[in-house]
Simulated assay, not measured.
Amino acid sequence: MATPEHRPDLRASDADREAVANQLRTASEDGRLDVDELDDRLAKVYAAKTYGELEPLTADLAPDPPPPPSALANWRVRWGSWAATSVLLVGIWAIVSVTSGDLTFFWPIFPIGFWALGNIAAMISGDDGTQSERSEGHT
């Protein structure tokens, strides 16, 4: 599909105009446009016939922020770090057991187990780790 920067002479659809209007409304809500400027730009949006007429109306606005990381990605990181640390701890335990010539007490069960319980508790409570990231960005 052609985009405004590649083919500014192509005619814009109603959906294209509405997308630009929504971007302008969001910019106004964020305080990047005042009411008069929003009204002026919206009038130009709905009068625009081509992508080339739409592009300058949002050129000075920051692009939309990237979407927050998905809950699944956060859980992969959470359980992945748990698994990597678990392997490391079991490796340390194995080296100590081999070098001592006797199987020592399996102490890694405590950090591995408590960390897993914390992850499970977070899953049950619905805490996917995204809330703290969202609140950190809005101070």
Rank of each mutant, 00 (worst) to 15 (best):
A62L: 13
Y51V: 03
P68M: 09
L54M: 08
I120K: 05
A116C: 01
P65A: 13
G31A: 05
P108W: 02
R78S: 14
V20R: 05
D64I: 02
D127G: 06
V45N: 01
F106N: 10
E37K: 11
A62M: 09
G113C: 04
W107T: 11
L10S: 05
R7P: 00
L103F: 14
G80Q: 08
P56W: 11
R11Y: 06
T58M: 04
S81P: 00
I112H: 06
D60V: 02
D127M: 03
R25K: 15
L33S: 07
P65T: 04
G118T: 06
A122V: 05
A116R: 01
A2S: 12
S86D: 10
A116T: 01
I112W: 06
E37P: 00
E29P: 07
D30K: 14
L72R: 15
P111T: 00
A19H: 07
F114E: 01
D128Y: 02
E133T: 11
A27C: 05
T99E: 06
A2C: 02
N74A: 03
G129C: 06
A62N: 10
E37L: 12
E133D: 12
G101M: 04
D60W: 03
L88D: 04
S100Y: 12
T58C: 09
F105T: 12
T50A: 05
S81V: 11
T104M: 13
D9N: 08
R134S: 03
K44V: 05
L103K: 09
P4F: 13
F105H: 06
P63G: 15
K49D: 14
A71I: 01
E55V: 04
R41T: 02
L61T: 06
M1N: 10
L42R: 11
G31W: 04
A19M: 09
K49R: 14
A47Q: 14
A94P: 01
A73P: 00
E133V: 11
R78Q: 12
V77A: 14
L57H: 04
P65R: 13
D40C: 06
G91Q: 08
V96Q: 14
D9K: 07
A48P: 12
S125D: 14
A21G: 02
E53K: 06
T139C: 03
L88Y: 07
A27T: 03
W82K: 00
F106V: 11
L117R: 09
W93F: 09
P63K: 10
V96T: 11
L61G: 07
A47D: 14
T99W: 02
M123V: 09
L33I: 06
